[in-house]
Design a protein around this nucleic acid. Structure first.
Length: 326
DNA sequence: CGGGTTTGACCCGCGC
DNA sequence: GCGCGGGTCAAACCCG
């Protein structure tokens, strides 16, 4: 198994209502290990850089602080090692309540089956910023079900759902950061309702060149690489010891910078109107955590304890949170 | 044949 | 109310 320099830059649970709502409706929470909740504000910024117009800050609420407290020691001592992680169980409750209500409606009428169950700002989300090869360590099996060009970004966003279990609501979105080459923004939505598969489907991550002359101009680099892959499949990224998924990502975004080391800790970056990244002072706490470990289960073994706590506290029965291994 | 991707069409929340 | 744009569907096709 490869040992990689993993980085976890931000873990975000989206919430619905309040102030900072990016395209995902996500609130970014700086959860660096040295975070002092007595003083801190939690920083919100849009990861959709071109649409971001101003940095938004919100005073950290006591309520939120209480919610995060169970994670303090995890981030400070254990696997997180400075990863930015946040959980907003209040939203989980809200979400589950909505689902219950919806199910009740269905059960009552037996006719109403909403096609779109949740909207973006109602879902809890976990956002990671990963390097391309980091994507390989996601041991869940994902099936791509869509791809969309995103306004303001030269890179499309790919949509994946869990293919391991038919009823699994877990979703994953992958898009390349338009400002940091080699960095992919991976957004996990919902949770797996099953244990992690022992092995991913062998076909997961396979690519083809069905549309070599795709009209999607923004994918032109992708086209080139894919064609190259066809002509010499063994010379592609599949030969680099990467997982199919990572290889695919690299193929889809050949311009990525494969140099490693995501800076984690507080990601005090924001983007101005020109999409230029600005970095706040004091964001130089560069600690790395192996996300390989995360996906290998040790990390989530620790997290699952937390999750169990949430389960008991909030009635969540899902065994995977949000990508734990069992 | 099963399970994957691709991609145009469609749905729907949200801002104006 | 309308249009934009993100998210999803599903048919067509590919691949092992």
């Amino acid at each position: 198994m490869m040992i990689m320099d993993w980085g976890l830059q931000a873990v975000v649970i989206g919430s619905s209502s309040t102030s900072c709502s990016d395209i995902h409706g996500s609130n970014y929470v700086d959860f660096s290990p040295n975070l002092d909740f007595q003083e801190s504000e939690y920083l919100s910024f849009s990861h959709h850089h071109h649409q971001h117009h101003e940095m938004k800050k919100e005073v950290y609420s006591d309520e939120l602080e209480q919610l995060y407290k169970p994670f303090y020691h995890v981030g400070g001592q254990n696997m997180l090692m400075g990863s930015s992680i946040s959980l907003v169980p209040k939203e989980v409750i809200k979400e589950e309540k909505r689902e219950e209500e919806q199910q009740q409606v269905v059960a009552a009428s037996n006719t109403y089956v909403p096609k779109y169950k949740k909207r973006k700002n109602e879902q809890k989300r976990v956002v990671l910023q990963l390097k391309a090869d980091d994507l390989s360590s996601d041991k869940w099996a994902w099936r791509k079900y869509g791809q969309k060009p995103i306004k303001g970004s030269p890179y499309p966003r790919s949509y994946y759902r869990c293919s391991s279990s038919k009823g699994c609501l877990a979703r994953k979105q992958v898009e390349q950061s338009c400002t940091e080459h080699g960095i992919f923004i991976v957004t996990y939505t919902a949770e797996h309702n099953h244990s992690q598969p022992t092995r991913r489907n062998s076909l997961a991550g396979t690519t083809k060149s069905k549309f070599p002359n795709s009209k999607n101009s923004i994918n032109s680099p992708k086209k080139i690489v894919k064609e190259e892959k066809i002509t010499s499949p063994h010379c592609s990224t599949s030969n680099l010891g990467l997982s199919p998924e990572a290889a695919r990502m690299i193929d889809e975004f050949p311009e990525i910078n494969q140099e490693n080391n995501i800076i984690i800790g507080g990601d005090n970056n924001y983007y101005d109107e020109d999409g230029m990244r600005n970095i706040f002072e004091g964001s130089d706490e560069n600690e790395c955590v192996s996300i390989e470990e995360m996906f290998d289960g040790d990390f989530f073994a620790g997290l699952e304890d937390i999750h169990d706590g949430f389960n008991s506290s909030f009635g969540c029965n899902n065994s995977a949170f949000p990508f734990s291994s069992t």
